[in-house]
Simulated assay, not measured.
Amino acid sequence: MTTIRFSEIERYVPALPGLYEIYTDDGEALKVGIGVNLRKRLIQHRRSRQSRLILRAGGDWSNPADVRSTQSILAKHLYFAGSIDGHELTTEAGRQRFLEEHCCIRFRVTASREEARALERVLEAGGTFPFHGRVNRLSPAG
């Protein structure tokens, strides 16, 4: 597995299928995921766009079920975490700064999306990565 910073995605991550893991600099596991195009997927996470978090008609921003993520589920997970280790995550700029300055990515290329998905399922089942599946208000301690 290769480990990089978010600022190094374009330089090191190929546009191929694979698995990625996101950790804080302190080693706290955050998210495991896959992409048919790893580079594109990780760039979407890095952007963490507020405009891609869509509030359901009549919804409430404090209810995860009322907010849909159209690009990066990580943005939604971070938004509802609120903060990790004192880093403000409810804003696009705060999430971007946190990812750029306090997180790293491990990734590996796989032969197919299916192979990546099988690896992802094993890692998710291990319980190490809190940001997978349904987004809840309760998130990693920080």
Rank of each mutant, 00 (worst) to 15 (best):
L123I: 04
G86M: 09
R121L: 12
T90R: 15
L38Y: 11
H102E: 13
L89V: 12
A75D: 11
A81D: 12
D25G: 13
R106Q: 14
N37S: 10
S72K: 02
D66K: 09
P130K: 12
E120S: 08
L89T: 11
E10H: 08
K40C: 03
Y79G: 07
S83E: 15
V13C: 00
R41G: 04
H132I: 07
R41A: 09
H102G: 02
Q50K: 07
R41C: 08
R106V: 03
T3Y: 01
R113G: 13
V135N: 03
Q44T: 06
L99Y: 05
R106S: 14
D60Y: 06
R5M: 00
A116V: 09
A57Y: 04
H102R: 15
V109T: 15
I22A: 07
M1F: 01
E10M: 04
R113N: 11
L16V: 02
R41Y: 06
Y20V: 01
A125K: 09
Y23E: 06
R68W: 10
L16R: 14
I105W: 04
S69G: 11
L38V: 13
P14M: 03
I54F: 05
I4P: 03
G58W: 05
L55K: 12
E124S: 03
A141Q: 05
R68A: 15
L99Q: 04
T128H: 11
R108Q: 15
P130L: 12
K76Y: 11
G82Y: 11
E114G: 09
N37K: 14
A111E: 14
G33T: 09
E10S: 08
E8S: 03
Y20L: 04
A118W: 01
R47P: 00
S48Q: 00
L89C: 11
E8W: 01
D26T: 13
